[in-house]
Structures are given as C-alpha cells and as structure tokens.
Design a binder for these strands. Structure first.
Length: 251
DNA sequence: GTTCTCGGCCG
DNA sequence: CGGCCGAGAAC
C-alpha cells in the first residue's frame, strides 16, 4: 500500500496544477518545509523562477506567492518588470543599440525583462559584454545548441566572441527599422571608443548575398518542419497521458 | 539512470 | 530568515 503524498489543487494556477508541501524530518533544518508544484503533465517545479520560465506569459506570477500558492495582492508594490516603453519614449532619436535592452521588439512573446545597469561609473567598460552568453533555450532550461556564424560577419571591439556578435546583431534588427550595416567607418576599427556609430552593432560592415538569403530560407523551412513534428509528438504524448490519468483514477 | 532530501549560499 | 538550487543519498 503506497501512501500517496498529498498534492493539493492550486486554485491560483491553471487547472491540473498541483501543489505539495514536504516537511523536513531530519538534519539541522528539520521542521522546515519545501514547496513543490506539479504541472498537468507531471513535471516537478521547486522554485518560482523555474515555474515562471515554464509558464512564460500564460500566467502573471508577479503577485503569486510560491510558498502559499496564493495570489498576494500585497505584493503589488514591486516595480520590477520594466516596461520597454520607458526606454524607448525617453530617447527621442535612434536608440543606442549597444546599450538599449535586448528585448524582443516584434511580437511580444517574452515578457521577461533584462537587467540594465545605469549610471555606473564604469559603464563604458562593460557595455561590450552586455550581451555575452545570451542563448535561446527551451522550457526545461536547457540551452539549445550554439550558432555558427558566416565568415563574413566579424565582430569589432574588445569582445570578439561569436555569441556576443550574434546577440548584438539580433538585438539591432529588433530595435531599429533602419538597415543594419555594421560599423562602416574604418576609423571605428582602430579606435571604437571614439568612432563608434552607436546606432549600429559592434560588427564590421558586411554584405548579404543572394545565396546567403537562399540558404537561410532553406534553414527556416527545415526548422518549420522540425517544429511541426515536435508539436505533433507533443500532442500525442499529452493525449496518451490524459488517457492514463483516467485509467489511474478509475482503478 | 532518476528521485528525494537536506545543506548552504546569497539576497 | 527564507527562497532557491547544488549535490549527495537513496532508490
């Protein structure tokens, strides 16, 4: 006879989510309790950030209290979650692509903001590194594979890593409707600190050929097929699971 | 290998 | 002090 540990329904979350509280029964922290949540598919979550990344924009966890599992109106004061209109409206001209937030500017599917350090005395020293290490990742927090960039793209300035370059360009494409050319002035090459065009990413001037475009179209096509297959597999998996759930309940 | 549990860091 | 996550223990 297995004593199923009690997982209670959590009203503050979408249907099917369960909450569990486990009391520590030994050690220095005996008596303390840990709270876990289970998605409808059974995945376990042990912290609010983890939950938040998984749910994305589906649910606003701003005032969700992880420990109690309830919405706490009192937590409304937190002014985190910067609106990007703040940053755009107060800079009338072109945004400075190397210091503005790398938030997606097209369809808003990511609402998580990115930390921006302002008024730091050494600001100039680390804006080059701001985008370092940004990666696409999936909902289970695993980093997806890194990108290979074409030889024609070359970084400029102190940080020459590919990942920073890629992020800088992606950010530029999102932030500006003007063409992205890279740094066209050869003077910027020798002394970026002075000649940098801040409305362009830290990247040498580059050209995009017709073949580049055809190649990319092919990649997009293949990626769409992969996505289609993955979605299909997921739908089937969920269907199977709900069948199993009903059988368990009936037994 | 996966899951459970407590330690311990850091804000 | 509590949230969060690493890592050893347990399975």
């Amino acid at each position: 006879m297995i004593m199923e540990r009690k997982k209670t329904d959590c009203p503050a979350l979408p249907p099917g989510w369960k909450k569990e509280e486990v009391i520590r029964k030994s050690g220095l922290s005996a008596g303390k309790s840990d709270v876990y949540y289970y998605s409808p598919t059974g995945k376990k979550f042990r912290s609010k950030p983890q939950l938040s990344r998984y749910l994305g924009n589906t649910v606003d966890l701003g005032c969700f209290d992880f420990r109690t599992g309830k919405m706490m109106p009192s937590k409304m004061q937190k002014n985190k979650q910067r609106l990007r209109s703040d940053n755009l409206s107060l800079s009338k001209g072109k945004p400075d692509l190397n210091t503005a937030l790398p938030i997606r500017q097209t369809a808003s599917i990511f609402k998580q903001p990115v930390t921006k350090v302002v008024n730091h005395p050494n600001n100039k020293l680390f804006w080059e590194k701001r985008l370092k290490g940004l990666r696409s990742s999936d909902v289970s927090e695993e980093v997806l594979r890194t990108m290979d960039l074409p030889k024609g793209l070359q970084s400029i300035g102190p940080d020459s890593s590919d990942e920073t370059l890629l992020s800088a360009i992606a950010s530029a494409l999102h932030m500006s409707s003007a063409p992205i050319t890279g740094q066209t002035s050869s003077a910027a090459e020798k002394n970026p600190a002075i000649w940098l065009n801040s409305s362009q990413p830290l990247c040498r001037a580059f050209t995009v050929t017709d073949e580049d475009i055809r190649e990319q179209e092919l990649k997009v096509h293949q990626a769409r097929r992969s996505l289609e297959e993955a979605l299909m597999a997921d739908t089937l998996a969920r269907a199977n699971e709900s069948v199993r759930d009903s059988e368990d309940r009936a037994a």
